[in-house]
Design a protein around this nucleic acid. Structure first.
Length: 883
DNA sequence: CAACGTCGCGCC
DNA sequence: AAACGGCGCGAGGTTG
């Protein structure tokens, strides 16, 4: 059919799924030659994702659709746009899905964030011009170019379009009212009213800064329990009607509200961690009387892949920010200039009346977002697990994050200052020494000559000319290793790069060896000495660090598998092995009269594989080892520590299972092979990589894989069959606790992307589940600390039981020496305690015993391993009373 | 010169 | 042709 525009002679292509009326019109941008030839728009390879999504959705929903393109020719001819209008006029679709940003911005001109399409993506909006609803989504090409998991955005947009036909609306209202509380009695009556209402309460605070512990003031607290009216409680603000006496009454009222008897079914926050820092600091409330709900966490739980798209969102307004969450649900309030988050740091100087409306909005909006999120969970068939995550899990998560960030990791400043002082630092001395060795190398001297000629045109040197060779500079590396030393570059692009492979291959070349040492030690200095010194500096640093010399990293929950991230600085990559790390570790020292306790789950992910897959032999391995350990703990005299180590080594046992030999006959090499293999398998490594890793040829790696399949059939079946079948079918995997990881990449055509999704699926459940258990266990411990009255704000910091760091499967504490007796209880909490808890609350039965390794000491360089026995405990105690 | 993407490497 | 999961950070280099 030809376009009926006289000026234009292009082909009109339109594909109809049915001759009935059209529900959904999908509009692509520019057709290809093939599209036109076949009369089938969006028929190319990159549209597979769209078409696969339609196929899958057809299985669940009944709907009709048409596919067309905005332009009718392979070039952008303006005249053709009229043709699209005619199509819309003719078919009167109930909703238009705009495939790509250009289509969306053409059809829906009312776009606020023009440069950030992902803020519009998936939001159903009403178009006056076409008198229909519009929804935008990314294109397949965009998914291919960016992240395969973004393919889900296309699927979700289509699903939302379909749900729209059924009258399902995820958007929230712009309408709300607000009230400023002006007397204590008024507050009392509002709080009593809320306490006696079975509803959730949206909570928000306005503060003077983003600090967590120090140099911070709460300006106001907002509450809303119906999604319509927000109450603003003025707090410490010049414009507040409350006297100091009033404030202490208000504090009592609030403490009672959050901890006393209540009918409230949950508190809804946006970024609960921040507001809980405020409530913890001001009111000392950490354990609440109702679940803590976080709209930010919920949004992540509903689509964790947004966390990988941060670059496509405005600075300071990420994918999970309140502005984004509300905007994506059609809330336009925050677009008003007065509501702009950027102005919020000035609130302390502006009368409350002027900003109360916007402050109130935060509590109202989160309430409504929660409703919208529940609706979404329902349509993902996820509501039951979602509520477990949102209500039960998140309460623990938030508590842990608040407590850890509040406590902070102690630093011995004397040691740190010494390490950073070039005159006395032993660490800097090593760096100087390596630099000297470099400059004495004949080869480096040749490089310096070359550099000098390059830069000055002359190779003459004066006495005292500084060394020109910079080991970090790529050009200098190139000169030294390729030009002078003539080492064959190992990179496929023919360029020298000082990576792991290069350093291993040429480890016998003197300069390469120096380089390796230099890189390592330099990293220790910049990453831990310089970095932390900066944080502790009163000019460049942060008050939450320098006020009490504790490191307060930010912990975030947005790692796609469910692990925590830590940043500023990253406490999870603090050095743990290798030369010279002692310098850095020595500064992590417990404060006076306290000790550090480090708790690691023992081979947690391998154990996770066992208890998630219910592999018999692997599980038995762990059970047997547990029994041996218990016997030893009861009476350490029955065997030596070495014997115990031998008998309770999971990798030795795996090797014994793989190779069919007794544990005590397993060689070092066999153990290493089994270990590397199991980890490789859990990461989804192929035979080639495993072979590479084991330093064997592929045949042997395949042999070990066969042994794995033969001897651990349930584990192999779980990883390679059950998990992948489930995720290809459902496009997600789900952990026993109810955490999902979406693997939208299966919407791609079969190929390497599917292989990637296979790996994500196999790994995510185990990785996430182990991390979740660690977090829950830590939270349970904090609960107990508070029951015993040893928590922060219950006693002075010098006597408080602190939780100071969390690294995926380990938890670190700083405890008063007097509480040393609690060590066995801590161990129990992280093993039996958490096992019982998840059985009760999540119906998750961990059938094998969990085990932890525990170390205690004054500082991280002087830790003593506890073998679980009473004897060893008293030995450590004795050692620690000496320091 | 600031912002950005890439690399290499630290941790589990 | 081959492909190892999850991260943060500092380095040099490129870009506008």
């Amino acid at each position: 059919m030809k376009c009926n525009n006289e000026k234009c002679n292009c082909e009109v292509i339109l594909e109809l799924s049915s001759k009935k009326e059209i529900d959904i019109l999908i509009v692509g941008s520019i057709p290809t030659d093939n599209d036109i030839k076949n009369q089938r728009p969006l028929s190319g390879k990159t549209s597979d994702i769209l078409r696969n999504s339609l196929l899958r959705l057809k299985k669940h929903y009944d709907f009709t659709y048409a596919i067309t393109s905005m332009y009718k020719s392979t070039t952008k001819k303006a005249a053709c746009l009229e043709q699209l209008d005619k199509e819309i006029e003719k078919y009167k679709p109930k909703v238009i899905v705009c495939y790509g940003k250009s289509v969306y911005t053409h059809i829906f001109s009312d776009v606020y964030y023009k440069d950030f399409f992902l803020l519009e993506e998936g939001c159903v909006r009403y178009s006056k011009k076409y008198n229909t609803h519009i929804i935008g989504c990314v294109t397949g090409k965009w998914c291919i170019d960016n992240d395969p998991c973004s393919a889900g955005f296309i699927y979700m947009a289509l699903q939302k379009a379909i749900l729209h036909l059924q009258g399902v609306n995820f958007n929230i209202s712009d309408e709300f009212k607000y009230e400023i509380i002006s007397t204590v009695e008024q507050l009392r009556s509002v709080l009593i009213d809320m306490k006696n209402t079975k509803a959730k309460v949206g909570v928000d605070t306005e503060t003077t800064s983003l600090n967590r512990v120090y140099n911070q003031t709460v300006l106001s607290i907002q509450l809303c329990n119906n999604g319509k009216v927000g109450f603003v409680i003025p707090y410490k603000h010049f414009d507040s009607p409350f006297t100091n006496d009033d404030l202490s009454v208000i504090n009592e009222l609030l403490i009672d509200f959050f901890t006393g008897d209540t009918k409230v079914t949950g508190y809804i926050f946006q970024n609960a961690k921040f507001d809980l820092h405020q409530l913890f600091r001001e009111l000392h409330v950490l354990l609440f009387n109702a679940p803590i709900i976080d709209t930010m966490f919920n949004e992540f739980i509903l689509e964790e892949n947004w966390s990988r798209m941060m670059g496509y969102f405005p600075k300071g307004q990420g994918a999970y920010s309140l502005a984004t969450l509300s905007y994506k649900r059609g809330f336009t309030g925050y677009l008003e200039e007065e509501m702009n988050k950027k102005n919020r740091d000035k609130l302390k100087d502006i009368p409350i009346k002027k900003w109360a409306k916007y402050a109130a909005a935060d509590s109202v909006v989160v309430w409504n977002i929660w409703k919208s999120q529940c609706l979404m969970a329902k349509h993902q068939n996820y509501i039951k697990q979602f509520k477990k995550m949102a209500l039960v899990y998140n309460t623990h998560l938030t508590r842990v994050l608040v407590y850890i960030e509040h406590c902070g990791m102690p630093v011995n400043m004397e040691i740190l200052r010494e390490l950073s002082n070039p005159r006395v630092s032993k660490l800097i001395e090593i760096i100087k020494d390596i630099t000297k060795k470099f400059s004495h190398s004949k080869n480096v001297q040749k490089v310096e000559e070359l550099i000098r000629i390059q830069e000055t045109g002359s190779n003459k040197t004066l006495f005292g000319t500084p060394s020109l060779f910079d080991p970090n500079k790529k050009s200098h590396q190139e000169l030294l290793y390729t030009k002078v030393l003539k080492l064959e570059p190992l990179n496929s692009n023919g360029k020298t790069s000082i990576n792991d492979e290069f350093q291993k291959t040429y480890k016998d070349v003197y300069e390469v060896g120096l380089h390796t040492q230099w890189n390592k030690i330099q990293k220790l200095k910049t990453g831990y000495i310089d970095n932390i010194m900066n944080f502790m500096n009163h000019e460049t640093g942060e008050p939450d660090f320098y006020n009490d010399n504790r490191i307060r990293s930010s912990y975030m929950f947005d790692a796609v598998t469910g692990r925590l991230k830590s940043r500023s600085p990253n406490s999870q990559q603090r050095p743990s092995r290798g030369e010279n790390i002692g310098f850095v570790l020595s500064m992590f020292e417990a404060s006076k009269n306290k000790i550090l306790v480090k708790l690691d789950y023992s081979t947690f992910e391998v154990r996770g594989l066992a208890f998630i897959s219910h592999d018999k032999k692997l599980s038995n391995s762990f059970i047997e080892m547990h029994e041996i350990k218990n016997k030893y703990k009861a009476n350490p005299d029955i065997m030596t520590k070495d014997e115990l180590k031998n008998l309770t080594d999971v990798h030795k046992r795996s090797a014994s299972i793989f190779f069919g030999i007794p544990v005590e006959k397993v060689s070092k090499e066999q153990r290493q092979d089994a270990k590397n293999f199991v980890f490789g398998v859990m990461y989804g490594m192929g035979d080639n990589s495993i072979a590479n890793n084991l330093g064997k040829d592929v045949k042997e790696a395949k042999k070990i894989r066969d042994l794995f399949f033969k001897n651990m059939p349930e584990a192999a079946d779980f990883l390679f069959k059950k998990t992948i079948d489930f995720s290809t079918k459902n496009l997600y995997v789900e952990s026993p606790l109810g955490r999902r990881r979406r693997v939208w990449g299966y919407l791609f055509p079969k190929g390497h992307v599917h292989a990637k999704m296979d790996r994500y699926s196999m790994n995510s459940t185990i990785q996430g589940c182990c991390s979740d258990l660690n977090i829950i266990a830590t939270s349970l411990l904090i609960e107990k600390i508070y029951e015993m009255g040893h928590g922060k704000y219950q006693v002075p910091d010098s006597k408080a039981f602190m939780v100071i760091n969390l690294v995926h499967d380990s938890s670190e504490m700083e405890i008063p020496k007097k509480l040393f007796k609690l060590i066995p209880d801590i161990e129990k909490n992280f093993t039996k305690g958490v096992t019982e808890y998840v059985k009760e609350k999540f119906d998750f039965n961990i059938e094998i015993p969990l085990e932890v390794d525990m170390d205690c000491g004054k500082s991280l360089v002087s830790m003593n391993k506890w073998d679980g026995s009473k004897k060893s405990l008293s030995e450590i105690k004795e050692k620690l009373t000496e320091v």
